[in-house]
Each structure stands twice: as C-alpha cells, then as structure tokens.
C-alpha cells in the first residue's frame, strides 16, 4: 500500500517537473515588433525616452572582510582565531552577516596538571565555526578626530545561529554579541567585535559552554 503511494507521488513529481520543463523550453518571445528593422529605423524618431534606474547606480550594500583576534574556548585556553565575514546591508538598521572562523584549542588545566591525561587528540583540537547573524545598528553616529575630521560609525548588536566543529564533532551554536563598525571611507570599515558562541558539549562534562571571541577586522564594500 505504502509502495504504491510512494511511486504514484514520485511519478506526479516527475510529471510536474517535465511539464514545467517543457513550458519553459517552449516559451518564445513574441515577435510583433521586430518584423521590419529597416523601416523601424527610419520611422522611429531619434528621441529616446530613457529613465534613470537602479541598474545605472552602483550600490554598496555588500561587505566582505577578514578578522583576527582571540577566542577563549571554555576549558581549553585562549586561542588565536581568524575569520571571514560576508554581510548584506538590508536597510540602514539591519544587516545579515555570515561568518566563518578557524581556531585551535590549547590544553585544558586537567591536561596540564593531570600528568598523562589527554582529553583530545591533535585533530580533535581543531575548532572551526560558521554562523548567520542578524545585526542591528543600535547606535549610529559620527566620531571625530580633531576639529576637521569626522568618521561615520555604528555600534551594533547581533544574534544568530550556526555550527561549530570541535572535538571532531558538530555542535549547533547560538551566537550573540556586539561591536563597533568604524567607516574609514564609504568603501572600507574597521570592525571591533565581541561575540559569545554558546553550545552544549560533553568533552569534560555535559554542559553549556560560553566561548568568548574578541576580534579586529577590516571590511570592504562592493
């Protein structure tokens, strides 16, 4: 009974796929206007009614950057971290941000003090993460240097989710944080960001770990 149902549904799917495939493939542009190109050239006046549209204006809504700093992996010391940032500025207030970062855990206190105890192998110490965060520019403004130079800036808060690979395992991870975005020009910005990556693991005991990260980054807008 189940079998028949499965296959009929799969057939339905396939048919729909084929049906729409053929519709798309057979769609032809209408050819009513381009019948006589020579005559069109003579008759159509040279006055072109143009309009200024989005395509002609460059937007600087995308941001790409690198960052570097310190990641404190709970129980496993403070470690250097390097990452990539890709962000899309949706409105003047909201930004969607994708991060990918790499670090490596040091030995925990147990391993340092406990003689021959080794909790993790070298491969298991590799720490990498990705996350998608929604960023809110809570305090936007200008900061000034001396009398004549002012820079635009924004203090932001963020929250998101992602995945951490540590102990050769994947952990679903919540990320919260905040930072300062300091615009050097309209196309470059410096970031100072502090984040907490929260996930549950059972490496030492089954518990929620807070992994604090402080980084300095440079971004470009395009």
């Amino acid at each position: 009974m189940h079998q028949t149902f499965n296959y009929s549904l799969l057939t339905l799917l396939l048919t729909t796929n084929l049906l729409f495939g053929s519709i798309v493939a057979n769609a032809q542009p209408s050819s009513s206007e381009t019948d006589n190109p020579v005559l069109d050239k003579i008759v159509t006046p040279d006055l072109e009614r143009r309009s200024i549209t989005e395509d002609q204006l460059d937007n600087e809504d995308w941001e790409i950057g690198v960052y570097s700093g310190v990641l404190s992996i709970e129980d496993f010391g403070s470690n250097s971290v390097n990452g990539l940032r890709l962000a899309y500025h949706m409105t003047e207030d909201f930004v969607l941000e994708l991060n990918y970062g790499l670090s490596e855990a040091k030995e925990s206190s147990i391993e340092v003090l406990g003689g021959g105890i080794q909790l993790l192998t070298d491969d298991q110490r590799e720490y990498s993460y990705y996350n998608i965060s929604l960023v809110y520019n809570i305090f936007q403004g200008e900061v000034f240097m001396g009398k004549n130079t002012a820079f635009n800036s924004a203090f932001y808060i963020l929250a998101g989710g992602g995945n951490t690979t540590f102990n050769e395992n994947d952990y679903f991870t919540y990320t919260i944080g905040g930072g300062l975005r300091f615009y050097l020009t309209d196309f470059t910005a410096l970031h100072f960001t502090v984040k907490d990556h929260i996930f549950t693991n059972d490496i030492i005991e089954d518990k929620v770990t807070n992994n604090l990260e402080a980084t300095l980054g440079l971004s470009f807008y395009f």
Binding site: E60, H89, E92, N137, A150
Partner: peptide
C-alpha cells in the same frame, strides 16, 4: 553627512539644482 536618518543635515539642495548621483547604500 551619513547614510542614515540620524546623521546631521549639513546642506539643503534647492529646487532647480543639478546634482550628480554617485552610489547608494541601502
């Protein structure tokens, strides 16, 4: 002065003035 509603207004463009659009942010 910046691409946001809170940034100070430092200039007012008058009717009839020609301006060049450079690029956009949001």
């Amino acid at each position: 002065t910046g691409p946001g509603r809170g940034y100070p207004i430092f200039h007012v463009l008058e009717k009839g003035e020609v301006i060049t659009l450079l690029y956009s942010k949001t």
